[in-house]
Amino acid sequence: MILSVKPLGDSAVTVQLGDAIHPRIHRRVRSFCHHLEKDVPPGVVEWVPAYGSVTVFYRPHVIRYDELVKKLTDLAADLDRVQLPPARLIVLPTVYGGEWGPDLPFVAEHNGLPPEEVIRLHSGRDYLVYMMGFVPGFPYLGGMSERIAAPRLERPRPRIPEGAVGIAGKQTGVYPLETPGGWRLIGRTPVRLYDPGREEPILLRMGDRLRFQPVSEAEFREIREQVRRGTYSVEIREYGGGEEA
């Protein structure tokens, strides 16, 4: 069940459960975290799931490496049979094109599609949040149509606004913070993936599904105003789709 267990320095250990970006491996990672959450070994501080691994941070003065590895190995037995709670589906209203998505024409032209078709393909499926990382609240998403793939900018923009929806190669993503970046920007969501003032500052979790819902510029402005006033509630429901992305 475990491909390898390797120390990451003297206070962390990486448990490798798969070596590809795949919904089945993702499910194994989720199952492992589910087990860990129910029965946190003493000395474990936190853990960080990734595409095919879970890294566990611990205090060596409470639990030594060998003892922890034994516990983690036990947790990893039978991962494929774990019953997981249903995933959440989170809907992000998104305005495409225009000043909000300056690279939509490029992505369309690059793929020989009309811009409306890029929007249809991008918003027409639900994306799996494989992992979180990079900056607070950033989801690594899987499941984008390869028909709208586009290379990164050769010269990254010094500032990409919060909420920008972009494409880089075969990946799509949303920027939770204003940062520099080389993604092709096709739209903008008014929903904040990261809001330090919110009770749960980070909106998304590993294992969630994400849907981009096209909205008009007027709707975008209206929602953005509601977000500012704190009256907007993000649409979150139980994900009804299948296990495989």
Partner: peptide, 10 residues
């Protein structure tokens, strides 16, 4: 900040 790295929080 301990305990939030799984959310991407640095």
């Amino acid at each position: 900040r301990v305990g939030f790295q799984h959310t991407g929080m640095v």
